[in-house]
């Protein structure tokens, strides 16, 4: 009982209170400096009549629609093959789960650097050495979404393949056999 108090206090202070406060604040007007005053639904009216909000909403939706199945599929395929792999089994598994351990902020910065234009971006520098003009990965309405999906899928796949693998120990052989059967071009696992 006493041990439970710690997570309860933690959740109340770090999760529940800020969430409740944010909901309350959404009906208020405040500039961080002065006092708060009630605004009714003004903030929501402003939000829903802002075309940028709907654009962001659509992009987030697209991000989930593309990202979720891709990362699930990748997670299973990779987990399956990692399990079968005997050569440097532990090392390669550890390397693969590394992104799961890395903080998202640190990862975002590293990927941002990968995507930068010449002369600092890793990908574009590689392209340039082959005489290929650089790609505006983050600075283009076409490439930006896939570009930010790639690291997200990478990280989510790592976490999913570890958790899904642990969770379904009793079923994993039969499940994987079924999956492999469906995925295999020859119809044999």
């Amino acid at each position: 009982m006493g041990l439970l108090a710690i997570p309860i206090v933690f959740y109340v202070v770090v999760r529940f209170y800020p969430t409740a406060n944010a909901i309350l604040l959404s009906f208020q007007e405040w500039n961080l400096l002065g006092s708060r005053s009630w605004a009714g639904f003004d903030n929501y009216v402003k939000l829903f009549s802002d075309p940028t909000f709907w654009k962001v909403f659509a992009n987030t939706f697209l991000y989930l629609i593309l990202g979720t199945p891709t990362s699930l599929l990748l997670a299973f395929v990779i987990a399956f093959h990692l399990d079968k792999l005997r050569f440097m089994h532990g090392t390669i598994r550890a390397l693969y789960f590394l992104p799961f351990m890395t903080s998202a902020v640190a990862m975002a910065w590293v990927w941002r650097w990968f995507y930068q234009p010449v002369p600092i971006g890793v990908f574009n520098n590689a392209l340039a050495t082959f005489g290929i003009p650089q790609i505006p990965f983050l600075n283009s309405t076409t490439y930006a979404l896939p570009s930010i999906l790639a690291p997200a899928i990478w990280q989510v796949s790592a976490s999913r393949s570890s958790s899904s693998w642990q969770a379904c120990v009793p079923f994993r052989k039969p499940i994987m056999r079924q999956l492999a059967l469906m995925a295999s071009p020859h119809g044999k696992p």
């Binding site: 234009p117 010449v118 002369p119 574009n124 392209l127 340039a128 082959f130 005489g131 003009p133 650089q134």
Partner: peptide, 8 residues
Amino acid sequence: TDGAGNLS
């Protein structure tokens, strides 16, 4: 510019 036509 570099060989690939990018600004250097």
